[in-house]
Each structure stands twice: as C-alpha cells, then as structure tokens.
Amino acid sequence: MREHKIAAIPADGIGPEVIAAGLQALDTLQQRCGDFTLDIRHFDWGSDYYKSTGRMMPEDGIAQLKSFDAIFFGAVGAPDVPDDITLWGLRLPICQGFDQYANVRPTRILPGISSPLAGVGPGDLDWVIVRENSEGEYSGNGGRAHRGLPEEVGTEVAIFTRAGVTRIMRYAFQLAQSRPRKFLTVVTKSNAQRHGMVMWDEIAAEVALEFPDVRWDKMLVDAMTVRMTLKPQSLDTIVATNLHADILSDLAGALAGSLGVAPTANIDPERRFPSMFEPIHGSAFDITGKGIANPVATLWTAVQMLEHLGESEAAARLMRAVEAVTAAGVLTPDVGGTATTQQVTDAVCKEIRGANI
C-alpha cells in the first residue's frame, strides 16, 4: 500500500469549501482504488491566523511543510487584509521556499461547459500554460524611498537569470514534447523590454536545439491575447514569464468557461521539496459561505497532484468522473448551472464509485 503525506491548507474565502470538496473526492478515490492512502494533515494558516497572530503562517511554517509529499492549497486573500501581506505571507514563501519554479496550468473546455467564444467547443481549446514561478516580475526585488514626499519613488525590478530561464524553457519544451502536437509557443515582450526579455528569447532559441522534434514559435504578449481569443486552435503548450503567464492563464480560464474550472500546479521538477497544488480562482469572498463555489478547479488540481505523486490511474479516474458530471449538466452557477458545491462533489464521488469510471 502506497502512502502519500498531504498538507492541506484551505486558507481564505472559498478555500475551505473547495478543499473540503477535493478531500471528499480524494477519500472516495482511495477507497475505490484500494492501492494507496493519503495521510492528510490540516493547517489553519491564512488571513484569520494573521488577524490573531500577526503572521499568515508560523515562523517555522516552511520547515513544518518540508516533510510532506504535496501541499493541497485553497486560496489566499481577504478584503480586510492588504493583498501584499496575504500573498507574500503565505503563498509566495511556499513557492519560493520550495523552489517550485514551474507553475503548470492546463486549460480545456470540459464537456457540458460553454466557452464565451462563438463556435469554439471541446477539442478546439486544449492548452497547457507553463508559468515561470520563481523570478521575473514577482521576484520581490525593488523598494520604496522618500515615502509621502512629492519625490516618492517605487521600483519593481524584474529578475531574469540564465539558470532560471533555461530551466523553465527546458521544462516547457519537455512538456510540449510529451503532448501529441509537440508544439510550443514562447511568449515574450522583447520589443519593449530589451534586456531580460531579449535574453529570454535567446535562451528559448538555444534550448529549442535540444528538442528538434518540437515545433515552436514566439509571440509578443499583447498579440498573444488576440491569438488566444481569435485562433485558440493554433495553440497547444505555452511558456511565459511570471507576470505574463499570470495574466494569460486567467484569460485562458475565462475562455474555457470560468475561472472556477481552472487548476494549477506549482512544481519542483527535481522533487527536492513538496510541490503545491491549488485552484486558480482565488478566495472569491463575494460568494464565500453561499455553497455555490465551483469545486471543479480543485478537483482538477487534485488530478494534477495525483499525477505528480505517481498515481496516474487514480488521476485518470478522477478526471473521467469530473467530465462525466459536467457532461451530465451538474454545474454550479458560474458555468450556467444551478447545482451547489456539495451537489457537484457528491455527483463526482458517485461517478468514482461507479463501475463505468
């Protein structure tokens, strides 16, 4: 019996609701498969923890997480706590502390869910966005000076290193190589950002030589938004900087029907540290407690976690169950349905237990 240690951090907003849904499905799945177990430990870190302690997580939080095989993360952010505190106090320290440099965001139009793009359905939009997750525009370099004075200045320094760019390019090319179309689009802005982004382009061309079987092209980030919207079939695997991919992946989720169906994996490809898996949608305080949060993003995120843990059969079973439920029209309001979070979760669990899945 294979055992995997999972740290569950529901955190803020709808995070506890969707993580509960994900854990229910995972529990059903391990009972159905019978060849692995998940040892789940819950952590109450987040904005409520901050309000009572002045920290988003304990000072030794990273050390506490280090022994786990994976981290199952909900969402971070609260209306009464500054966003920079919530993000830099919890999520980013985990990503950077464990060098989870590959942020992987698959996007597909699931059966039964409509895209806002006219004439685009399942099969027409099938992407994986690889986001550089350790440096770039979110490296944390910069500062503020002369606060409150007319000459106050704030600098935000984007950091691009040869090591950092090379490893994310190699990861993206390898991922593209593993997919049927073997096609990668490199997103850039080297016409205006003439130092780091020019190096980004040069390293992409260098790494491409290692993968002669992978076709690739290059797009400026602004033109990329047009291509994603008007020619979704022309894209497959995409790699972009921390900032650019953050923005483009939200657009991708919307084009697939809702951010409520968009998953994320923060991966340490070398497996030195635990990787972290989270839905893309954020804390969504406007619907917190209403019981209508879409659990699909979290369930799909659980699929990514299972794949990372080597449980490919269980991952495929869970994904088939999710697609069967969406195809049957059991959908939350964000994708045009009337079902609750619990109803979708129960339907997925019923599919997992069924003989056909």
Results as ranks from 00 to 15, higher is better:
E132Q: 15
R179V: 00
A176F: 05
D124P: 10
C95N: 13
I85M: 03
T161Q: 09
V130K: 04
P122W: 12
P116I: 06
L117A: 03
Q96N: 13
R181P: 01
T86C: 08
S114D: 13
F173Y: 14
T166A: 12
R105I: 07
D80H: 15
D84A: 05
L117R: 07
E151F: 08
F98T: 03
A118V: 09
R179Y: 02
Q100P: 00
S115Y: 11
V130F: 04
N141E: 13
R181F: 03
L175A: 03
E135C: 07
P111F: 12
Q177G: 08
I159K: 12
R181H: 08
D124W: 11
Y138W: 14
Q100M: 13
I113Q: 10
F173N: 03
S134E: 02
K182H: 14
E132T: 13
G154W: 01
A176W: 02
S178V: 06
S134K: 06
D84Y: 14
W127C: 07
L110R: 15
L87P: 02
Q174T: 15
P93K: 01
A172F: 05
G121E: 12
D124K: 14
Y171Q: 13
S115Q: 10
N103P: 04
A172T: 10
N103D: 04
G140K: 07
I159W: 10
I109C: 03
Y171P: 07
N133A: 12
F160D: 06
K182D: 00
L110F: 15
S134N: 10
F160Q: 07
G140L: 08
V104W: 03
V128D: 04
W88H: 00
D99M: 08
R179L: 05
F183N: 13
T155A: 11
R167K: 15
A163F: 11
L117V: 03
R108G: 03
S114A: 14
L92Q: 05
R170Y: 06
E156H: 14
Y101T: 03
G140W: 03
S178G: 15
R167C: 02
V120T: 11
L175M: 12
D126T: 08
G97D: 03
R91F: 00
W127F: 11
P79G: 07
G154C: 11
W88Y: 05
F183A: 09
E137C: 05
S134T: 15
D99H: 15
E152Q: 15
P82W: 10
V81N: 00
A145T: 15
L110N: 04
R147F: 13
R131K: 12
A158I: 05
G97C: 06
E132Y: 09
P116M: 07
N103Y: 04
Q174E: 15
E151Y: 10
I129E: 04
I168R: 01
L149V: 01
R162S: 09
P93I: 00
K182E: 05
P116L: 05
F173H: 06
Y138P: 05
S139Y: 11
A163G: 06
G97R: 08
G154I: 11
A158H: 07
G123M: 10
D84C: 01
G154S: 14
